[in-house]
Amino acid sequence: MNFRRIELIFLVTFIAIDIFLFGMFEQNTNQQADNMSDGDSDSQVVKEMRDDQIEVSHLSEKKNFAYYLSGTQNDILRQQMGQLANQTPHYVSHELESEFKEPVTVNKTTPQKSINQMLDDPTFVVNGGQYSYSKNLSTSRNLVYSQKAMGSSIYSSEAQISFTLNANHQIVSYTQSYLQDVKSLREKSETISETRALIWLYQYNEIPNNTKIAWTKLGYTKLLSIDNDRVFIPTWIIGIKPQNSPEIQLKKINAFTGGIIKETTGNLKDSQDLSDLTN
């Protein structure tokens, strides 16, 4: 009888130990799952972003390749503007402003299609073939074309055409800027992925809550100017749209280093510190 009681006590104790051990085991596996997802911390951060009411669509993890580019600002547009027909061009500080004598009618729903067909015409715009339509920068009354470079586009007011449309779907005028001799400064290198760029932007606290990532694009933006030369770096350009506003805010991330890029206009030779330029 005594032995039976001892057995019973042992049984109860062991069941208690089992429950305890099982609890520990559970906890451990959870922790491991945590660690696993930490290893995949990118998706963790994206989840965090969604928790902060930031609307993100599917992001690409793919790494791209890009170059450092340079281009020269010169007066080539002025030299070539004589070839333009049906317009009165003016050349002011490296920019060609032109008004059409007879407005050019374009397609109602997709005006870019009509413009694409005319781009190669040297009497319409100078070097038009070197530009491509940039949907993200355009509005219904203002169509922006960016200068192409090494399989991508330059996002800069110094290398674009901006067409102004009237209410009757006609182009009334445009402004054009152009960089000559766009070339790579170094062999191509790997850039960070779209996901990484967005994560860093988020970790720099540059994405407010209650916003939507409208679009992301890998292009080239200006790093600095040295006299007439412009240096461009590959950049993840991210359009952020607040939930209750139609206006889109642009943010830029250096696609090589992951640093955030703020607007700078200064010439390198006037700067004392790199952070003035590349921060």
Binding site: L8, L11, F14, I17, F25, Q31, Q32, N35
Partner: peptide
């Protein structure tokens, strides 16, 4: 009771072994 006790002992032994040999390290964290 003896059978239940044996099962309980075996389970606790197994769980102990699993927990000890489990590389649930905090280092990766």
């Amino acid at each position: 009771i003896p059978i239940a006790l044996t099962i309980a002992v075996v389970v606790s032994l197994t769980l102990s072994v699993v927990l000890w040999t489990n590389p649930a390290n905090y280092r990766s964290k």
